[in-house]
Write a protein that binds this DNA or RNA. Structure first.
Lengths: 355, 355
DNA sequence: CTGAAAGCGCTTACAG
DNA sequence: CTGAAAGCGCTTACAG
């Protein structure tokens, strides 16, 4: 894979210098607006150079700039799973949209590390041909991230921002406050009289998953102490047998089920209809995410995580970290966005008061 | 935006060379497997270098490699509109998915040129800070592309491939055979007895739009000569007033309407239902695209353009062009994929034979 | 005020 | 068989 096949007809600063009758260094100075300060270049010369620059349509070689130590306004984007297939689209599309918007505003290009080799179903950031350093900094996306890799990145001093909270020292991130959002919804249900909760969640150690879980458990504890928590039925699932999960929920006698993903909630809702279980009269449903595109036949009582804004904020934070003129305070390195809820129609008081 | 803030703790070939007790050049030779041929490095030395390489987790600086003239396995991706917002998602998502898949297989990273400034609603490839050359080559996506820019790219000798047919000399592309696909559907309608066609299409000069139009017009001409074409009602639209377009279609007395986009077709279908027009008994509908995600309540008789495969093929072609060991024949520089159709349920014979 | 020079980290002929 | 050297196109002190 060579690009210099073509006998490099490419125009360089040297050529510009010849044409303008100045030295190559002068061209560089003019280009980088360093034409003041110690090295003041006469306006006339500057104009002459600028003119040639314009006429030739010169564009600096980003590789050379990079090598010479300046930034290129390239933000790396690393997704732990392929981003565009239909399956992961609901997860990544809003994030990428936010990143793209922010990048466009910042005048940055995006380098997607699609070459990362897949190990155990998720991509590895560090590998032999890793092109990380071509980017000025990097954005990390995914439900779960390898903590060792994050530590490596921190140790390297490579600028990056994780999208979503990460439980690793020194990792800058922007997160959504899932814990509070979830707790608020649980609190609502409690006040309506619910005491028996079922919680169907993704079987993952991802921080956002843990945060939502903490929201459920902590609020229950706060409201009803240890016994309330004991009554909680927690079902970790991979979504591969929701039929079974549904049966477990019914068996538990729960009056409200908290479902982590909108897709699963849709399925459960169908099971409920099939089995003649009225929602929310006989069973309330709380969902902790927004439906993806194409989903959404039911107006669930749910969390509405601002995921596009999340990614935008992470991108802006990365840009700030990369800007040498911007002194980002340590406490700004970790940001948390509030997570609003949508009332919906699937939460009501329980049919019979349980205990 | 500087990355070298950190006092470049970065490990280089020079450091590796010190550690292994060889010259820096030797490290490079080992790394690039140029350790045979003229310069044969003893297996023992090679192993020693490899060991240090492994221990230090060395990764070559892609910028330096690039500058030294070798490829980086980075494919540029230029979209004429922002790619991720919900509105353009149906258009770009399948394409990006195909590109991502192919890139992953090829071990390439993707550089998205999100920084391109927007002029007249579409991005410009050439601009002051254009980072094109950081990529080994580039993929171009969009309904319409600026022909002047394409010519510029060809003249520069920069390797690229357009996704979709382009009417510019020397532009390599992979396209979908919309003309034949469309013609086949028109032919079917003709044989069912339809003579009065209405064609609602996107008001654009994009080549794919023109190809579909040619499919309609040429097939009518072939079947019924000039008079058949004269009876065709062609409605260029921006989709901003489909109500008006629908009225025009009804007024024309057409027995079949050919609609370019699935989204518009859905809308027209609703108008039909509202106005008590039975589809296909009173009006047949032919659609020239697939519904996006979330769409698709009606099983339209339609084209099923292989857009993911299209983008994959374009990516593979670009990779071949970039591979110095691969001699791409000139006739391989332009490829056309067949465009299958789906029978659906919206095409039937006309209610009354017209003339 | 401007030019010559070093250096960024690589690759690749070219001498030993 | 291996090392010293040139060169890729830039930026930025450093001399004039």
């Amino acid at each position: 894979m060579t690009t210099s096949k073509t006998p490099s007809r490419r125009i360089t600063q040297r050529r510009i210098a010849e044409l303008a009758g100045v030295s190559q260094a002068t061209v560089s100075l003019v280009l980088n607006d360093k034409a003041d300060g110690a090295a003041r270049i006469p306006e006339e010369t500057r104009e002459r150079v600028l003119k040639v620059l314009r006429e030739t349509g010169y564009v600096a070689d980003p590789a050379a700039r990079r090598l010479a130590g300046v930034g290129n306004k390239i933000l790396g984007v690393f997704t732990y799973e392929p981003a565009f297939p239909t399956e992961s689209q609901d997860f990544y599309a809003p994030l990428l949209s936010g990143i793209e918007q922010a990048a466009e505003d910042l005048g940055c290009d995006l380098l997607l590390f699609t070459s990362a080799p897949v190990v155990n179903g998720s991509r590895r950031l560090f590998h032999e041909h890793n092109r990380l350093r071509l980017a000025d900094g990097c954005l990390l996306l995914g439900v779960e991230m390898d903590h060792a890799e994050l530590e490596h990145l921190v140790a390297d001093g490579f600028p990056f921002v994780a999208v979503g909270r990460r439980d690793v020292e020194g990792v800058p991130y922007v997160a959504i406050d899932y814990a509070s959002g979830t707790a608020a919804l649980i609190g609502q249900a409690w006040e309506l009289g619910h005491r028996r909760f079922a919680y169907l969640h993704v079987d993952s150690r991802g921080e956002s998953v843990l945060d939502r879980r903490a929201g459920v458990v902590d609020e229950l504890e706060r409201r009803g102490g240890a016994s309330a928590v004991e009554q909680l039925l927690t079902i970790p699932s991979l979504g591969d047998d929701l039929q079974r999960d549904w049966a477990a929920i019914r068996d538990s006698g729960a009056t409200v089920v908290v479902v982590e993903t909108a897709e699963w909630a849709e399925r459960l809702h169908e099971f409920a209809a099939r089995d003649g279980v009225e929602v929310p009269r006989q069973l309330s449903m709380i969902v902790l995410s927004e439906p993806g595109r194409g989903g959404g036949s039911v107006e669930f009582t749910r969390l509405s995580p601002p995921r596009t804004a999340l990614a935008s904020a992470a991108t802006s934070l990365l840009a700030r970290i990369l800007d040498p003129d911007d002194d980002v305070r340590p406490d700004e390195l970790r940001q948390t966005l509030p997570c609003p809820a949508i009332a919906g129609v699937t939460l009501a008081g329980p049919a019979e008061a349980t205990e």
